[in-house]
């Protein structure tokens, strides 16, 4: 079997899709599509979503439109053994929804304390500075999972939706070359 034939394992969609609930039905969409279609969130509140959008965009430009919030919301709403989150690999103990609530709560709590506003309401420069301090565990009065760990987990989520999809590879000019491309199957 030559290379081309073997790569013919590739099938279906060019981008990994997940099951999002639209109306009463499960619809297969990419996180970016889910965001563009304003798919209702299952687990995160509007405030939590705004925080995650803002943190994601600060960590990796493009993460907001790539659907980081829809991605995380869908992933923390399914059984942990089905989840695709880096939190899984970092030994976070399920349920993952509790962990994400704790992370986002810690960020907004610290932001409110230091700046009098939630993270999403800060200026881009303030958001950058906040994340830089959180990364180094230098935010006084921080309450929640350790700041550097929060940074690592949410940065990984943002990297996932921006760079680790097939379109993310294309944007970097890297051939994706899958044996089996991400499809609707998982």
């Amino acid at each position: 079997m030559n290379d081309i034939e073997r790569r013919a394992f590739v099938k279906g969609a060019a981008i990994g899709t997940l099951a999002f609930t639209v109306g009463a039905a499960d619809v297969m969409l990419t996180p970016r599509q889910a965001r563009a279609q304003n798919v209702p969130l299952r687990t995160l509140t509007a405030d939590q979503a705004a925080t995650l959008d803002a943190v994601g965009e600060t960590l990796v430009p493009g993460a907001k439109d790539a659907g980081i919030t829809n991605f995380v919301d869908q992933q923390i709403s399914i059984p942990p053994e089905q989840a695709l989150l880096q939190a899984r690999i970092l030994n976070v103990r399920p349920p993952f929804a509790n962990f994400y609530r704790a992370m986002l709560g810690a960020i907004d709590g610290a932001s409110n304390k230091a700046k009098g506003h939630k993270f999403a309401e800060l200026s881009p420069a303030e958001q950058h500075d906040f994340i830089n301090l959180m990364r180094q565990n230098k935010i006084e009065g921080w309450q929640g999972p350790p700041g550097p760990f929060v940074y690592t987990v949410l940065r990984s989520d943002a990297v996932d939706v921006v760079y680790s999809t097939m379109e993310g590879y294309a944007a970097l000019g890297i051939p994706y070359m899958p044996h089996i491309a991400p499809t609707k199957k998982w």
């Binding site: 695709l84 103990r93 399920p94 499809t183």
Partner: peptide, 22 residues
């Protein structure tokens, strides 16, 4: 055929939580 070429999807081959804590 479930072995999808993706670092995201590949995480499903690994444990999610217990029964071993660290």
């Amino acid at each position: 055929t479930d072995l999808i070429s993706s670092d995201i999807w590949g995480r499903r081959l690994k444990p999610a939580g217990g029964p071993i804590l660290l």
